[in-house]
């Protein structure tokens, strides 16, 4: 599952070798430009679009992957944007809908580029260099470490549920089963967190986050 999001995060290109702060700054500035430039300067959008596609092609991210991700993303941004003309009786709001969808897709493609040239670990190191509080970075690192474990647990529970054919029933029953699954997952996860906490304490954890390169 993790492979799908940042599938190209570990390949090699000029984009991947850029200093992480520069990647972050580039992505943020293109997103800000995309949202802030008024529509009447529309040629600027063409320039931004070319920039984004150039970035993706230099980073070696295939077009097929972009299209696949964009197809998953479009219903989300589209369903919200379509509510504009829908609520206006279909005679107004189309221009704004297009504007929102275009800006949304542009920002999405930029984020996608960033995700695929900057692995999560690198983001954590960068955040730490940017003086984000150590606790925040540590929690994010912990989340990234264990989210896959929790997912596996969820997958096991889903399989068990399917094997016992708990899929039918009334809507109320299904909601109850699914919620109870989340509840049990929560309890198991927190049990795991307590065990991990115990293991951390036995290795000298005192709540202070230390990093290996703190000396310099």
């Amino acid at each position: 599952m993790s492979d799908f999001w940042d599938r190209y995060g570990r390949s090699v290109s000029i984009c991947h070798r850029m200093p992480p702060v520069l990647k972050l700054a580039l992505a943020i500035s293109v997103i800000v430009a995309g949202v802030a430039i008024p529509v009447r300067y529309w040629p600027a959008y063409g320039v931004l679009g070319c920039l984004v596609f150039a970035g993706h092609s230099i980073a070696g991210i295939p077009l097929g992957y972009l299209i696949k991700r964009l197809l998953i993303f479009l219903p989300f941004v589209g369903s919200m944007a379509i509510s504009l003309p829908l609520s206006q009786g279909l005679d107004r709001g189309w221009d704004l809908m297009l504007q929102i969808m275009f800006r949304g897709c542009l920002a999405f493609l930029v984020s996608l580029w960033l995700v695929n040239v900057m692995p999560f670990e690198q983001l954590l190191v960068t955040l730490r260099k940017l003086r984000v509080p150590a606790v925040v970075v540590a929690i994010l690192a912990f989340m990234y470490r264990y989210v896959f474990v929790v997912w596996d647990e969820l997958d096991k529970m889903r399989t068990a549920r399917k094997a016992r054919s708990f899929s039918g029933g009334s809507l109320w029953f299904r909601w109850r089963t699914l919620s109870q699954m989340i509840g049990m997952l929560l309890i198991r996860s927190l049990n795991r967190a307590e065990r991990i906490h115990g293991a951390m304490c036995s290795r000298g954890w005192d709540g202070e986050v230390r990093w290996l390169d703190d000396q310099d």
Binding site: I139, V150, I182, S189, A193
Partner: peptide, 15 residues
């Protein structure tokens, strides 16, 4: 803080 909040985050993510 770190293990509990981090695990809760992972759980909401998965949930």
């Amino acid at each position: 803080t770190v293990p509990l909040t981090g695990m809760m985050g992972s759980l909401i993510f998965a949930g």
